[in-house]
């Protein structure tokens, strides 16, 4: 199984552990991820808030480069996935946009490459049953609150899950790895995302509600598939705990980190040490 890989800016910095664990898991599962040469930023929220043509052209340049690799594009960052998939669909649907974008990026690209999140590849191409067979170190009933946030589930046309209000994709995957997913109602609430820097109090309120609910639902940890969610729930957790005057103590893993552990990979290879909220206690059980 070979794919064109779009890491995105976060996976090279704040989400370096997501990148490390993704590459390690892919290798262990026999999935080849070929990085798109000289990939560039997807534009994220600032681009679509500023100019529609810019917001379509930045992803289009990367998708056109991926087309030359003749493989599906795999993305891990939820924001990059959302921007690439949205631009891809817009280019496929709108001829005028296609022509305008071709003038900007210097080639015609018609939204023909398939853009997929790594979770989709694991379930659809490899399969949960196959993954279960490769588990060498069960997660031992670790109670996980799978948290999807916004950009993997909405809007419906771009959703990687069949039910955007109650997704089960990460639950199925982690159950195969020996975890016990908890039932909880906030898995698609918004953490405040890109307001982390500009409206930190908003993010603390929204992320605080999510962490409190995960805790009340009996989770040992939270599992995410988005660098923005991970940052807001992990990096800001100590501040949130101080503000509500209660200990939270919920490590926030990327799904690839827990899956990697179940596949017998080392904590070092998975970047477990880069988490801010210490996972030692829950992993020692």
């Amino acid at each position: 199984m070979k794919y064109a890989f779009f890491p995105g800016c976060s996976l090279e910095s704040t989400a370096r552990d997501f990148q490390m664990s993704t590459l390690a898991v892919a290798q262990a599962l026999g999935i080849e991820l070929q990085e798109i040469p000289d990939w560039s930023c997807c534009g994220s929220s600032p681009a679509h808030s500023t100019d529609a043509l810019l917001a379509a052209s930045l992803p289009a340049r990367n998708l056109a480069a991926a087309r030359r690799l003749e493989k599906d594009v795999v993305v891990c960052c939820a924001a990059c996935y959302s921007r690439l998939a949205a631009a891809n669909k817009a280019l496929a649907d709108d001829e005028n946009l296609r022509i305008e974008v071709s003038k900007v990026i210097g080639e015609m690209y018609g939204g023909t490459v398939r853009v997929r999140h790594f979770l989709q590849v694991l379930r659809e191409d490899l399969g949960i049953a196959e993954i279960r067979k490769l588990v060498t170190r069960s997660l031992g009933g670790l109670r996980v609150a799978c948290y999807y946030g916004c950009l993997l589930t909405r809007p419906r046309e771009l959703s990687i899950v069949s039910d955007p209000e109650d997704p089960q994709l990460m639950e199925e995957l982690l159950a195969a790895a020996g975890a016990t997913p908890v039932e909880w109602p906030f898995k698609t609430e918004c953490c405040g995302a890109s307001f982390s820097i500009t409206r930190t109090d908003t993010v603390k309120r929204l992320s605080g509600e999510i962490l409190k609910m995960a805790k009340e639902s009996g989770a040992d940890c939270v599992v995410v598939a988005c660098p923005l969610c991970q940052n807001n729930l992990d990096l800001r957790q100590a501040d949130i705990a101080a503000a509500i005057g209660k200990e939270i103590g919920l490590p926030v893993f990327y799904f690839t980190q827990l899956l990697g552990r179940a596949l017998g990979l080392s904590d070092e290879a998975l970047g477990i040490g880069k988490l801010m909220t210490s996972p030692e206690k829950v992993l020692a059980r």
Binding site: S45, H48, C150, L151, T153, R154, P155, G192, A193, F195
Partner: peptide, 8 residues
Amino acid sequence: VSCHTCVS
């Protein structure tokens, strides 16, 4: 925050 809950 562009969470897309409204349109969904």
